[in-house]
Every structure is written in structure tokens, then in C-alpha cells.
């Protein structure tokens, strides 16, 4: 083992531990003698975290109705200062994860390696593998100080596997006075209605982009998704244009997806997008520009107009 102890910031959604948290715990087991978790809802996650290798879940209290970043970062930093902290901290690239990593970085005066897709051992220390230029090049980056390593890791970088361990013990991690930094309060939570499979779990994803021409044509993507039992997704261009909500976005700033089949309709394949979907098992692209970068990752590419190809495709699937 290259390090003694790794802590993983473990998140829950609707009372259930997130898949990304399980992925990070599984990876941490490969790298460290001891894996422990930090959570704002330890009782929700202790069983699953334990089953994936965590011996302890450190509960951070006082975040109800608050943004969690300042409290979690301060609690971890205090543990490090008191000598009971980890050698490395793995955090998912999620909304709250990025908040935690940024705050913690300042508290520890430690650099963060971001956009990590793998953590490896190099000369007895941990290093992060980070894809750049749309994933065509990988850089391996190591820390140059003796601070705890902070890695911000992309979802779906590892497969989650159970360790066979029992529930993790729950311990309490003290939160110091946060002053003004802890003063943001959540007054309401809105959940966008979603029908069909989610982008995270779908076996097939159908995404649309600017090539659809106008907002109303996104309906073609939804119809095709419905026929295939797929999750509908989108490129950043049409999310920025307001055609579909941000939660549909696949790419660097949106969701990372790795479905069995990914269908890109009217998407040129900007770096921003490729990063979020090129790990798909098979990729089908439909785009009228033969030079579009999306074809460089496609297993099947149709050089054609989505307005012509999609309606016929939907009809053919309906008739099967």
C-alpha cells in the first residue's frame, strides 16, 4: 500500500449513498491501508460505506439547511491539524464536492489535483491521471508538498465493488465556528420532474445538439429515447441556449456518462462534450458535417441531416 490512510467525502442523495461515493471508496481500498468516510448524513451511508471498505464514517453535524462545503472542509482541516487526519482525501467532482475541495485547499494551504480519472502510485506517493485536450492526452500529476493530497475525481472513473465488510462505525467530527463562511442557508429545494431512466444509470443515452436547429426539434431526441428506453441528454450548446435544463447536460461541466450505447444527434463533438461521453461502450453519431470531431470517437457514424435521419429511425423502431 502506498499510503496509510485515505478519507473519502461520501455523499447521499435522497438518503442513499451515491454511486460515485462507492466508486471512490472502492478505489481508496486499493491504495491505502485504512479507508474512512466523511459525511453529513453518516447514518444513511454507514452500511453501504462499510460494505465498500470504510471502517469509520465521520459525521459532520450542523449542515441541515446549509451548504455543506464550509463545515465539511473545516472539520477535516481541524482533524488534520490535530494530527488525526488522512494522508489523502478523495472527493467527487460534484456540486458539493467542489465546494469542499476548494475550501479545504485553502484551510490546508494544499493544492488540489482536479478532473482526475485515475489515482496511481508513483515512487511510493499518489499521483492523479488527468485527461486534457478532450481526452486525447493524459497527464500524470503529483503533489510537491507534504500536505494531505486532495484529489477531485470525476464520476464513473472506477467500478464500485463491495469489500464484504460490515457497517462502518459512526464517529463525530467536530466543526469549528465557521463565522461568515457558514452563513449561506438553503430555504427551498426544487426537484425537477424526471421520467424514464436517469443519465447516470441508463443503458442507452440519446443526446441532441445544436445541429437540431431549433428548440422544438429536441422532441425528436425525446421520441427516440422513449423508443429505446433511453435517457435523453444534451450538449452544452443547447443547454446554454435554454432548450433543455442543465440536468440534461453531458460533458465536462455536466454529467459523465458511460452507457452501453450512446447516440449523438446533431452534436459536433466539442472537447467539452467528448470528455463526458467517450467512455461509452459503443457510440453512434449522426451529423451532417463529415469533419465533425464526434466521428473520431464513433463506432458507427452517419453523415447526414438529423432532421431526415431521426424521423425515419423513430418510425422504423416503432414498426419493429
Amino acid at each position: 500500500m502506498s499510503v496509510g490512510s485515505i478519507w473519502v467525502f461520501v455523499e447521499a442523495s435522497d438518503g442513499t449513498i451515491t454511486n460515485t461515493s462507492l466508486e471512490l471508496l472502492t478505489k481508496a481500498r486499493d491504495l491505502a491501508d485504512t479507508v474512512e468516510a466523511v459525511s453529513v448524513s453518516a447514518s444513511d451511508v454507514a452500511a453501504a460505506a462499510g460494505a465498500h471498505g470504510a471502517t469509520t464514517v465521520h459525521q459532520v453535524d450542523g449542515t441541515d439547511g446549509k451548504l455543506v462545503g464550509p463545515a465539511v472542509a473545516s472539520a477535516i482541516a481541524d482533524a488534520v491539524a490535530a494530527g488525526g487526519g488522512p494522508d489523502a482525501i478523495l472527493i467527487a467532482t460534484s456540486y458539493d464536492g467542489r465546494d469542499v475541495a476548494g475550501r479545504l485547499s485553502v484551510k490546508l494551504d494544499a493544492s488540489v489535483i482536479t478532473n482526475v480519472v485515475d489515482v496511481v502510485e508513483v515512487d511510493g506517493a499518489l499521483a492523479g491521471i488527468v485527461p486534457i485536450f478532450g481526452g486525447s492526452t493524459n497527464v500524470t500529476t503529483k503533489f510537491t508538498n507534504d500536505k494531505p493530497d486532495i484529489f477531485l475525481i470525476r464520476p464513473k472513473s472506477f467500478a464500485a465493488e463491495e469489500s464484504g465488510g460490515g457497517p462502518a462505525a459512526v464517529a463525530s467530527l467536530a466543526v469549528p465556528d465557521l463565522g461568515a463562511t457558514g452563513s449561506a442557508v438553503v430555504t427551498n429545494r426544487f426537484v425537477e420532474e424526471q421520467t424514464g431512466p436517469s443519465l447516470d444509470d441508463a443503458d442507452i443515452v440519446v443526446s441532441g445538439g445544436r445541429g437540431l436547429g431549433e428548440s422544438a426539434n429536441y422532441d425528436l431526441v425525446e421520441q427516440l429515447a422513449k423508443q429505446l428506453g433511453a435517457a435523453p441528454g444534451a450538449s452544452r450548446a443547447i443547454v446554454d441556449a435554454g432548450w433543455v435544463p442543465y440536468s440534461y447536460q453531458v460533458g465536462q461541466t455536466g454529467k459523465v456518462v458511460k452507457p452501453n450505447v450512446y447516440i449523438a444527434a446533431g452534436i459536433s463533438g466539442a472537447t467539452q462534450h467528448l470528455v463526458g461521453m467517450k467512455g461509452s461502450k459503443t457510440i453512434i453519431a449522426i451529423n451532417k458535417d463529415p469533419e465533425a470531431p464526434i466521428f473520431s470517437v464513433a463506432d458507427l457514424g452517419i453523415v447526414g441531416d438529423v432532421h431526415k435521419v431521426l424521423p425515419k429511425l423513430i418510425e422504423a423502431l416503432q414498426n419493429r
Binding site: 497527464v139 500529476t141 503533489f143 510537491t144 470517437v297
Partner: peptide
């Protein structure tokens, strides 16, 4: 800087 790049490699191409 608290980090440095130690290796650059081509990613596995599809």
C-alpha cells in the same frame, strides 16, 4: 505550485 506534471502520454484512442 503544490503540484507538478511528471508524465504526458497519449490516451488510448478508440
Amino acid at each position: 505550485a503544490g503540484q507538478e506534471i511528471i508524465e504526458v502520454s497519449e490516451a488510448e484512442a478508440r
